[in-house]
């Protein structure tokens, strides 16, 4: 049975921790595009954990995972603005979880669910990292024009990863978990 979004049970706590660990761990793999921004396959982890566990787990694993990456590879700075961006993205990835026809563990989903996941995730990435860019201008005093370049680059890269890797990984998991009732041993 699926848990309500706000039910903060032990499994949710562990899912946040493990999701954050995976996101943080895989964030070390980047194909650089512009400074501080690149193609990060780790985005797919947010797609997967959002779809599997919902927006709360998506938000917090995104935030905690990002902080952990920064602590290890951030050059001694936690980029709070981008932490928020990862968190909002994770939240958006998790919205589809609320649909009763969608359950990755039981291999159930509709076409509409997948479209929702693709769109809500993409929008969340754009909004999330958009907020990060704006915060960078206000908190750090970065030049707005430069931030726009970074924003477009990161949004396009991350949305691509979300759609190509993330959504296809969720489809893969759905297929793995689908119960085939009419399996026969073939000759």
């Amino acid at each position: 049975m699926k848990q309500s979004i706000f039910n903060f049970d032990t499994k949710t706590v562990v899912a946040i921790g493990i999701g954050a660990a995976l996101y943080g761990l895989l964030s070390t793999i980047t194909i650089p595009l512009v400074p501080q921004t690149g193609l990060r396959p780790a985005i797919a982890i947010l797609t997967i954990f959002g779809a599997l566990f919902g927006p709360v787990v998506g938000f917090l694993s995104g935030a905690i995972g990002h902080i952990i990456t920064d602590l290890t590879w951030g050059g001694g700075t936690i980029w709070w603005s981008w932490v928020l961006g990862s968190a909002i993205s994770g939240l958006g990835m998790g919205l589809v979880y609320a649909s009763s026809s969608f359950n990755v563990n039981e291999g159930r989903s509709t076409k509409g669910n997948i479209v929702t996941l693709a769109i809500s995730g993409s929008v969340a990435l754009a909004v999330g990292y958009g907020i990060s860019s704006i915060l960078d201008v206000y908190l750090f005093g970065e030049a707005p024009d430069k931030m726009w370049v970074q924003f477009y680059a990161s949004a396009i890269a991350n949305i691509a990863v979300h759609l190509i890797l993330g959504v296809s990984a969720v489809l893969g998991l759905l297929k793995l978990n689908r119960r085939n009732s009419n399996l026969r041993v073939l000759k």
Binding site: K175, L176, R178
Partner: peptide, 11 residues
Amino acid sequence: LYGYREWPVSA
């Protein structure tokens, strides 16, 4: 495994 060739791994 030939008889299972069209099976999903999860089964």
